[in-house]
Design a protein around this nucleic acid. Structure first.
Length: 411
RNA sequence: GGGGGUGUGCUUGAGCGGUCAAAAAGGGCAGACUGUAAAUCUGUUGGCUAUGCCUACGGCGGUUCGAAUCCGUCCGCCCCCA
């Protein structure tokens, strides 16, 4: 087996690491248990979370045992790290609900059946903590002057937003997580985004102070696209892993539409293709690079939604943009009562109603600027009334701009 | 506890009591170009029953013919002193 640490490094997963040699050795000697924390404030993970997920998957394939934890306890505080504002606090019930959905998503990438891997909620051990005991046993190991040197806290201290005592404790709790996982499950490696570096180190220190054992930490680079945007964000919002929030077709399209400059990096992060292949695809130029994007999109979609969905998304995409006509089935569709169509609907209302424009004013703008199409025919007049006569094969195909389609069927 | 600041549209950030739906930049959207990419150029960017009306400049109240702009008060945040 080739060295998994080097492999992670080659694929770009390693940003910082407590000690490269140690970590590399630990990972190649014996199977170990490692963990990553996920934020349960939303009911789905998004494309940005794929970096840790893929790293975990690589490690699991190499024989190590993952623990995914959600911060049910810590979320109730709000993480100040690298945020210009506090994360919202949410209720226990909400965390449980979100956690269940997140688990499902993780299971597409990881085996978390308690044998090969685990899924835990840190509320399990955090909620029952006794304040005095915690201060005495854990708090005494932390130096405030060290803590406030941490970048995340420092920013908050220097800027206008301030930092509540509550948030200031976040680092202790996360360090305590690591300690618990070490004690209970022999977990000796924590991974996380680079913004978590300080918190990870705090945990490493805490385990050393209390248990006298050396555990390890590793961070991933915080991905931004070549255009400078946050990974996994589009104009329409985040690219979610939940198919109900981001359809597999939209998911596929996200990867197709990435910047040329991101292709190689993303193939390394978000597929399991061997690096030779990744580099070959990354070196394609001009038109050919679309082939590489198609591979990326197909692979990433297969991982997130399964092969069937990936096949469908691919077909739809090729049909829509390859010139062969559109795959109507995969398109977002709105049903409109037939008598409403017989009466006729003002074009602005129609575009607004199906969600291609967020307000009627926006629909008006879209139309006036020539971005509105019905059945591939451009409409620039805002006073057009759309009625049943315009149905083409019993449907209307609306298009806003170049890429956003919506189908309307009578019912 | 005392003193001084500050709070503006998706974001940053200008704003004289009327000509402010509010400069500017970023972001978004549309058009041209193109490879479903990038860069560039152009237009546009609160809502609506639309040459007008409504809602907006931290909350509430007041002064005024008229307030984002003045006053009071409350809330949040920052700085200095204690």
């Amino acid at each position: 087996m080739s060295n998994i640490y080097e492999s992670l490094q080659e694929r770009g997963f390693v940003q910082q690491c407590t000690n490269a040699e140690d970590v590399s050795k630990v990972l190649s000697d014996n199977p170990i248990t490692y963990y990553v924390g996920f934020d349960p404030t939303a009911d789905s993970l998004h494309a940005g979370s794929l970096v840790p997920i893929m790293a975990m998957a690589h490690l699991q394939r190499a024989g190590h045992k993952p623990i995914a934890i959600i911060g049910g306890g810590t979320t109730m505080i709000g993480d100040p790290t690298d945020k210009t504002e506090m994360r919202p606090m949410i209720s226990v019930e909400q965390v449980d609900k979100n956690g269940a959905r997140i688990l499902k998503q993780l299971q597409r990438y990881l085996d978390l059946d308690n044998n090969a891997g685990m899924f835990l909620n840190n509320a399990e051990w955090l909620l029952s903590l006794n304040y005095i005991e915690f201060l005495r046993d854990i708090g005494k190991h932390f130096r405030v002057n060290e803590m406030i040197r941490a970048e995340g806290y420092r920013q908050r201290l220097e800027r206008e937003l301030g930092l509540s005592f509550l948030e200031f404790n976040y680092q202790l709790l996360q360090a305590y997580d690591y300690l618990c996982l070490f004690q209970k499950y022999d977990c000796v490696l924590q991974l996380g985004g680079d913004d978590q570096w300080g918190n990870i180190l705090a945990g490493v220190d805490l385990v050393r102070r209390i248990e006298g054992e050396r555990v390890h930490g590793l961070t991933f680079p915080l991905l931004t696209t070549a255009g400078g945007a946050k990974m996994g964000k589009t104009a329409g919002g985040a690219v979610w892993l939940d198919a109900e929030k981001t359809s597999s077709y939209q998911f596929y399209q996200y990867w197709i539409n990435i910047d040329d400059r991101d292709v190689e990096r993303f193939l390394a992060y978000f597929t399991f293709l061997p690096m030779d292949e990744v580099r070959r695809l990354g070196n394609l130029e001009h038109d050919a690079i679309r082939e590489a994007k198609a591979v990326l999109a197909y692979q990433a979609t297969t991982l997130a939604h399964g092969q069937d969905e990936a096949d469908k998304a691919q077909e739809t995409s090729q049909a829509a943009f390859g010139g062969g006509g559109l795959d109507l089935d995969a398109m977002p569709t709105t049903a409109i009562p037939i008598d409403q169509l017989n009466t006729g609907i003002p074009i602005m209302d129609l575009f607004h109603q199906v969600g291609l424009a967020s307000s009627k004013s926006e629909a008006r703008r879209l139309i006036q600027q020539g971005g509105a199409y019905i059945n591939e025919k451009q409409f620039k007049a805002i006073d057009v009334i759309v009625d049943a006569n315009m149905l083409d094969e019993d449907a209307l195909l609306l298009r806003a701009g170049k890429k956003r389609y919506h189908r309307v069927v009578p019912e």
